[in-house]
Nucleic acid binder design. Sequence first.
DNA 1: ACAAGTATACCGTCTGGACGGTACAGTACC
DNA 2: GGTACTGTACCGTCCAGACGGTATACTTGT
Lengths: 191, 191
Amino acid sequence: MSRGESSETGARILAAAEDLVIREGVSRLTLDSAAQEAGVSKGGILYHFPSRAALVSAMVERFVVSFEADLVERQAYSKEPGAFTRAYLEATFDPREAPADCREIRLGGALLAGVTSDPELLKPMRERFETWQAALEQDGIPAEVATVVRLAADGLWLSDLFELAPVSAEARAEVRAQLLALLERAISNRS
Amino acid sequence: MSRGESSETGARILAAAEDLVIREGVSRLTLDSAAQEAGVSKGGILYHFPSRAALVSAMVERFVVSFEADLVERQAYSKEPGAFTRAYLEATFDPREAPADCREIRLGGALLAGVTSDPELLKPMRERFETWQAALEQDGIPAEVATVVRLAADGLWLSDLFELAPVSAEARAEVRAQLLALLERAISNRS
DNA sequence: ACAAGTATACCGTCTGGACGGTACAGTACC
DNA sequence: GGTACTGTACCGTCCAGACGGTATACTTGT
């Protein structure tokens, strides 16, 4: 289907497209603008990604895989109860790429927002969320506690994305502590 | 700027546009499609809303006002601590228009997703969120508890909107109970 | 009372630009 | 001689917005 990021130029195109999407949103991502951003011709883009949709799809895929990797890393293969829930919480509250604009997080939202026209493009993201939710429910703590943590984390993401009353750094730390306390309580209370 | 919904036809256009957006997303809202849906000509639309952006903007405004009214109604002017937080929680978990697909909630998300191209259109929504967040922080309970509730509610909204591992009705009730318990604990523990 | 003028509420066509995608000829490197 | 492009030219579609027109109601001067 698409040569994608297997090649050097393909990866550069993808990265440039991501920059563009983060800066201006998916709706402003055109083949021409992406070509310009990547320093490549339009033909060059279509050589690597057979259509605009394929390009967007590759971005979604990459985003999902990246967050997934973050989760795995944080969990560090711990099997303790609540480990996955904690990883999810921390991955959202203290993103890896803290520097300034938190590229990855913003990208996800821009993508999320931009692909509503074509539900097919959201499919990989939907599938991952289902997987994560399932993992949360099997995390050795009550499912409703894990779900509360997940929803709050997702809510934080939402507020960051669209800048809907974003939570300040201090408040964020307090909220994080509150959720961790909830988590600890659930761990020590389990039967 | 726009005659808007002050007239009968203006309101009909707005309602028709909302239906269209809920069904197909903002990207599919064109002047032509809206005209057809409303049983009005394209010129007729532009008479009431001077541009497509004005139409979308009116929808955002209406959505925000509607949710706001829901909050006020649920709060019923109670001044008890946690009243606003509880109202926010319940407005999200048990939407007024329960029937089927919950029109209002879906509309908000479709709008949210669709207006990323023009950040200006989100402004009224941003302002409201700031107001609500401020109210939550002044609700007579610790701000971090109120914020956790808000974030979880927003997270639920997000998951519904994009169908990202949506929470089942039973799980939703349990999560709601969990958050209410957190709220009650905060109320009884306040100094 | 009645013509003339004016404002309101639309209708429907046209245009110009943006964009996705195609086609293809050419280039440079390995 | 194939792989990896560049560059240009072009097609078809979609769509916002402009614009000229129309029908009806309401006002105003006489």
